[in-house]
Each structure stands twice: as C-alpha cells, then as structure tokens.
Amino acid sequence: MARPVLTRPAAPAAGPGGPRPAPSRRLSARTRRLVRPWALLAPALLAIGVLLMYPLARVVWLSFQDYGLDNVVSGQPDYNGLDNYVELLTDPYLWTVALPNTAVFAVFAVGGTVVLGTLIALLLRSLSPLWRTVVTGCIMVAWAMPAVTSTYVWIWIFDVDRGLVFQALHALGLIGPEGFNWFTERLTFYAIVTLNIVHHGFPFVAVTVLAGLLTIPRELHEAALLDGANAWQRFWRVTVPTIRPVFAVVTILSTIWDFKVFAQVYLMPGGAGSNAEVLNFGVWSYVRSFSQQSYGLGSAIAVLLTLMLLAITIVYLRALFRDEELR
C-alpha cells in the first residue's frame, strides 16, 4: 500500500509570495530536514536501545557464563564457554519436556485461536450491524481479562475438589467422587492453558479477520456465485486468497505470543517449578534463574527461546515484504 510519504518539494515551490527564503536559510532547512527524523526518533531509540537491545545482548553474554548468586553479588564473571548450551542440548528434558510444552502447545493454541477467530469473524460478517456491534463488544470482554485473573478463573473452574467441571462431570457420573487432578497431568494441564490462551486470543483474530473480510468487494463473491461456487468453495477461492496477508499476520503474531506464554503457566498449580513436567521454555528459564540462581543457564534457555522466535519472525517479515506491505 503506497503511503503519501512526504518528500517535500524543494523550497522554491513552497511559497512564491514569502519573502523569507534566503540561500543560507534554505541550506539550514535542508540540514534540519536531515536531522529532524533522527531527532524525533532519538528518545524512542534510546529507550529501546538501553532497555531492550542492551539487555538482549547481555543475556547472550550471560549465557556463556556460570553466573550464580555469588557472581551477582560480587559482579565477577565466570566464563564457561559453551558449557551451558552443551548441558541444555544434551539434556533429554529439553527435547522431551520443555520443547513440546512450548512448540506443540503453540501449534494447538495458534490453530485453535485462528480457526475459532476466523469462524467468529465469518459469523460476525453475516450479522446485522447492530448485532455485530453487540457481539464484538462482548468478545472484547474476553480480550480485556488480564492474563493473571483469567488464569485464576480457569483454575477455579477446574478446581480438583470443588470446581465446576468436577461437579458437572461427577453429576453426570463420568468421574468418581475422588475427582481428577487436571494440574498434575501434562496433557490436561496444557489443555487448560490452551483453553485459557484461545479464550484470550481469539478476539484479536476475529476482529482483525473481520476487518479484512469487510474490505473484500462484494462483486468478487457475486462473480464466484455466478460461476456456481458454493459457500465452501467461495471461502477458499475468494475469501482466503484476498485476505491471505491478514491470515499470515494473525497466525504469526499468535505464534509469537503463544511461544512466550508465562503467567498462564507459572500461576497454575505446580507451574512455578514444583511440577517439572509442565514447564515451558519461558518458565523454565525463569525458574532456573530466579529460583535456582543459575542465571547463566537460565540465560542460555532464554537465548534458545529467542532464537526460535527469531526464526518465526523472519517468516513473518517475509510474509509482510512479499506483499510489499511495508513500503
């Protein structure tokens, strides 16, 4: 999408009536034009540089060290080369627990979020404007719930002894009075996390996809209809290709977000370290660093997570640039 980026014409065109333009002024105006964007960017770049880029570099730095509590207190580094990475990558825990808990979970969470969000967007498009507004407003409620509170609500719903799900299943005779502990089993634990994430994440997808849907010219659909395409075919042949960039963006953004899930795991019973089966990369890194004071090892885990996300981001950028969205 071409933007009216302002490349202001040279000064003479600015105002024939103006008495101001003197040669020296014009020169300084040009310098100012060169400097101005950087002056405007400086505060933001400074903040990003000091508070995001530098810490990122430092965490890479830390990942090559054996950094414990005594190192933090004394400030003395203790380099151990690639030891942290060797230890991590040869640890079956990474391959059998942490990675599946991060990546496989993300696949399901993203799939659920995007599919549900798209279905709801299609539903919203078919509603009258009044209903569309009402339903969108209600969807916002799910989005607006802070992660911390929604996690506690889900824990309460799935409470082992008195939760709603237990009572419902018990009343139906599906489980006995001893109940079922959803939080100790990895699969059910992540099923709840997925539910929590999908519930929180689908509104963004629904709203964004809806906006995309509304930009599709009606004629396209009508033409397809004349060709005898049914609703299913029209969806795949007209809707999907037209708003493919939108799908790319919501999928990749959701993927990035779902790889980084923290509070939704950390706050669940056993999620803060006592149940090693359920940690994902983020929580693992945090627990390693702040509960067990292996800041170096925790940093290495964090670096691995960042690399995974970087790979996904590159795909994201490709998707954006291919459609020449950024120009």
Binding site: L56, G298, A302, T313
Partner: peptide, 10 residues
C-alpha cells in the same frame, strides 16, 4: 518478538 522472559534476567 523478543520474549520478556529472555530480558528479565538482564
């Protein structure tokens, strides 16, 4: 995309 979990240590 940088995860906060990666930045929190430093």
């Amino acid at each position: 995309m940088v995860p906060l979990e990666a930045l929190v240590i430093s």
